[in-house]
Design a binder for these strands. Structure first.
Lengths: 248, 248
DNA sequence: GGACCGTTATTTGTCTGACTATTAGAACCA
DNA sequence: TGGTTCTAATAGTCAGACAAATAACGGTCC
């Protein structure tokens, strides 16, 4: 079996990338990406474990562990005799960070981005309001540091973009609401792609700092309603910029 | 090995319940519940696979598949040499339906319920507003049917409670927003426990139907702002009832 | 002809035991 | 003291067998 490595043209799971470094993780990632990108439609039956693991040149146990991961995220469902089939989209854990990252391995559809955006518009202003009432010094400092970095680096560098995400993350964290905080990866994904699209239509890149500082100031001052409104404005502006870039 | 069943005092995974009928699912559930309930704290190292599977009287592969499930939900992280340890709470997928159900296997803390409640208050009014603009006839019919059932059965019966959840679920679905819709299980969990607490302090059970019909009417009429406000009132009233019951 | 019921084949599920890869921490050396 | 090598503990992967579940088929009886 080991000597057969690399033969057989098609198949062969991608192993690079430190992230899903384990074999089962790599298989899950590869299969998961194929599912969310529509290469396997809901209702489709995957080839059985024996054949699938042979084609991928991996042991059945590694393949099974990958399937367990996908099942845990609601992407597939296994039953004896019937096999493993792709679950209806309604069961997918679309907000799971890994599922999201699989979405973004290939370019996500515009409508999906739109939906994430809507989520942002619902969650972030409310989160900012809560954060204004609950933030502690450390969180405030983290927000400030993120904005300073963002200002220095601008959104052109990876560090600047990371700082942007970190700011939004800190706001979510400051809500002191666990379930709400878990949305930060989804929000972060939306933020990241907003930036990517903005960068593409790189006409007149509006300075995004003023809105950000207004949100920060309101949260620092403990002004709930002001924080909500400032965040609403921030998200709205980001959407407008993205829309403008798409047309260009 | 088979003959050793039932010896050894502690251990033995719970296998009843049709849901997590598979062995790996049952193990995941049992371990997952132990983690979210705090029996294993973040940072704790689980006993290694060999010992753990021996103690549970299951094969190492079944145990490993269970761990993959937990890892997929962010509850644990495995590395060679170090072992498998419980991840920091911030990584837990608190909105995953299964994780949530593990939370509710033992009575959830009041603060956790409070947090879910806050999420409801953020998401549901906004969802109602979107639903008012996007709902189709089928969804409207589903909402109506749910409310009719709820009215007949009242919240005392399981069928009535299911109808309540179904109503809220239909509203989320009508937003035509996939990511948002995945929150329905979390919302549903919050709804369920609100009802349970209300039932306990069963003094004067206020009729919950008027608020519900107002939400429905606004969504049916396509009145976005009215729908948002009606849902806001509904959630607020539910919270008040729950608060009142807790004092009693 | 149609409903019921056992049979069978297919697929996932579970078990066992061996070997490999990774890596934290100790021992060692410069 | 600081870096390097070694070692042992642990998860990771593999192979092959057997068990359990169940959808589909086929036969029986009304």
């Amino acid at each position: 079996m080991a000597k057969a490595r690399g033969e057989e043209g098609g198949g062969e799971v991608e192993r690079e990338e430190a992230s899903s470094g384990r074999l089962h993780g790599a298989i899950a990632r590869s299969l998961g990406a194929a599912i969310v990108s529509g290469k396997h439609q809901p209702g489709d039956v995957l080839t059985n474990e024996i054949e699938a693991s042979e084609r991928l040149q991996v042991s059945r146990s590694a393949y099974r562990e990958a399937i367990r991961i996908l099942a845990a995220k609601g992407l597939v469902e296994s039953r004896p005799k019937t096999g493993t089939r792709v679950s209806p989209r309604a069961r997918w854990r679309l907000l799971d960070p890994e599922v999201l990252s699989w979405f973004f391995e290939s370019e996500p559809s515009e409508s999906f981005l739109q939906e994430l955006y809507e989520l942002r518009m619902i969650v972030e202003p409310a989160a900012a309001a809560l954060a204004a009432k609950r933030r502690d010094e450390g969180q405030l400092e983290r927000m400030r540091a993120a904005l300073v970095t963002m200002q220095h680096e601008t959104l052109v560098t990876e560090a600047g973009q990371a700082a942007d995400r970190d700011f939004h993350d800190a706001v979510l964290e400051a809500t002191a609401n666990g379930p709400l905080f878990t949305l930060s990866s989804s929000i972060g994904a939306a933020v990241r792609w907003t930036t990517i699209f903005k960068q593409r239509g790189r006409g007149l890149a509006r300075d995004p700092m003023p809105e950000h500082w207004k949100v920060f100031d309101a949260i620092a001052a403990g002004r709930k309603d002001q924080a909500r409104e400032a965040m609403e404005r921030l998200v709205t502006l980001a959407l407008e910029d993205t829309r403008a870039s798409l047309k260009a």
